[in-house]
Design a protein around this nucleic acid. Sequence first.
DNA 1: TTATTTGCAAACAGTTTGCAAATCA
DNA 2: TGATTTGCAAACTGTTTGCAAATAA
Lengths: 140, 140
Amino acid sequence: MNTTKKQSRMTRQKRVIMAEMEKACDHPDADTVYLRVKSKLPKVSLATIYRNLEDMAGKGKLLKLTGTTQKTRFDGRTDTHYHFHCVQCGRVEDTSVPPLKELSEYVAREVDREIWWHRLDFFGFCSSCRKTKQSVQGEV
Amino acid sequence: MNTTKKQSRMTRQKRVIMAEMEKACDHPDADTVYLRVKSKLPKVSLATIYRNLEDMAGKGKLLKLTGTTQKTRFDGRTDTHYHFHCVQCGRVEDTSVPPLKELSEYVAREVDREIWWHRLDFFGFCSSCRKTKQSVQGEV
DNA sequence: TTATTTGCAAACAGTTTGCAAATCA
DNA sequence: TGATTTGCAAACTGTTTGCAAATAA
């Protein structure tokens, strides 16, 4: 639970990071952002990049394309199916959503790609956790 | 490029790991599998679990629910949209697939969940890499 | 017999954190 | 001035790897 009201102060680093993210169209990772910011502020540190990106994501200013799970999980079922992840208890459940074959074909045709596989993951509260909700940090 | 023809040898460890994965319905992570196998073979090591799960995934005997990207990436665009990941060059592109709102509602109703967000990722060769394909390891 | 697989520990990669110095308001 | 933010280095977590000993075929 985070009830601390922390106010934000504008810094040179923050300004450059925000500017870089606004013009970036390539979904850069933290290290790439670091390199770009470093070219303008040579003394910036990677930790500052991480701290600021995390912060911006928390404020909804950008999306964090994290792995869907912290740790890799393994699934004995190998046919195409999709998962639901409970953000509170961490449970992963199979859904009954049917394979989105046409969608895959559409994305393939879009700009002449070749799609090998796709994945669809839902996040939220499982039916048992709905009753006992706690805090959640906004993340995608 | 992996042209080595490595043959597989059945071991006690492998047998137990396979059995555990067959009966598991909870998408366990490597550490969880380790604990389960360890209860039958106390001397087993985590590295063996990783090696075998990796191997099984490579043979299509199970699905690896990896994060969608190795590193976290950040996206300045915050409206609901989906991504395509090129397995060769690593590029991440936005797709024009419209938001799957109804699908999310369907999954919510399925067993009375509360869906907060979802993500859909496509993997394959981008249009420029189609022409210069190299090897890819099977992974999901 | 001998190539494969294991257990162990050390290496790795990405990310986070503690802390004193710098800096924004 | 005084709280926030930084840079640095060290810590952490999940995963991989090198190597000698164990083992399946």
